[in-house]
Computed example of a mutant assay.
Amino acid sequence: MLVYGDLQSGNCLKVKLLLSFLNIQHDWQHINILNKETQTSEFLSLNPNGKIPTVVFDDGQVLCESNAILSYFAEGTPYLPTDRYQKAKVYEWLFFEQYSHEPYIAVARFIQKYQGMPEHRLEEYQSLQSGGHKALKIMEKQLSQSAFLVGNSISIADIALYAYTHVAHEGGFDLTGYPNIERWIDAIASMEGYVGMS
């Protein structure tokens, strides 16, 4: 199995983390987005959307979109509950991550870390802060009530939201005001099989 990704990307880190936690063997193919390596005709034949992560299975089948990939590998493991409601709560957080978290925190991080805060994006950067803090407050509230986002054991909801939350400071978000998020980050980072951004 071949996984195309970049471990500086939170969306790719999600997949790498779950595969590592589950000890699933795979070959990791580093792709540099900034060098437009996702826009080659070869890559676009695998993923017409030109994005990573992208998984190519041994039989040639291809799976894209980080949270779809997480759901595929988590099925039948402790990382995705079997209870219908609990499973739906996991998916609720996965959708939250893509629509209410990533568009603010990941984009602000990209502007600050990778683009060096260009003047033409400063207003956009500032506008992302309130949305990012709103998402963090929602997470903080839930994590004040349970050890993880869905109950007291880790699920792919946590992996999905960990990816960009643990580097939120790289987008200007100070996490010191979110003690439960900080506790949660430490708990995930201390798990056996943990891999970080590299």
Rank of each mutant, 00 (worst) to 15 (best):
residue 99 Y to A: 14
residue 103 P to D: 09
residue 103 P to L: 01
residue 103 P to V: 01
residue 103 P to I: 02
residue 104 Y to G: 02
residue 105 I to R: 01
residue 106 A to M: 13
residue 108 A to I: 13
residue 110 F to G: 10
residue 111 I to Y: 13
residue 111 I to G: 06
residue 112 Q to V: 07
residue 116 G to D: 05
residue 119 E to I: 06
residue 119 E to Y: 13
residue 120 H to N: 15
residue 121 R to H: 14
residue 121 R to I: 11
residue 122 L to G: 08
residue 122 L to H: 12
residue 127 S to Y: 11
residue 127 S to K: 02
residue 129 Q to C: 12
residue 129 Q to I: 15
residue 131 G to K: 01
residue 132 G to V: 04
residue 132 G to T: 00
residue 135 A to E: 09
residue 142 Q to K: 08
residue 142 Q to D: 10
residue 143 L to G: 07
residue 146 S to A: 11
residue 149 L to H: 06
residue 154 I to K: 03
residue 155 S to V: 15
residue 155 S to R: 07
residue 156 I to P: 01
residue 157 A to V: 09
residue 161 L to A: 05
residue 161 L to R: 00
residue 162 Y to S: 09
residue 163 A to C: 04
residue 164 Y to Q: 04
residue 164 Y to S: 03
residue 164 Y to L: 03
residue 167 V to E: 02
residue 169 H to K: 15
residue 169 H to I: 09
residue 169 H to V: 07
residue 170 E to F: 07
residue 171 G to H: 11
residue 171 G to P: 08
residue 172 G to T: 11
residue 173 F to E: 08
residue 174 D to A: 01
residue 175 L to D: 00
residue 175 L to H: 03
residue 176 T to E: 05
residue 176 T to M: 10
residue 176 T to G: 11
residue 178 Y to N: 12
residue 179 P to D: 04
residue 181 I to N: 00
residue 182 E to N: 15
residue 182 E to H: 13
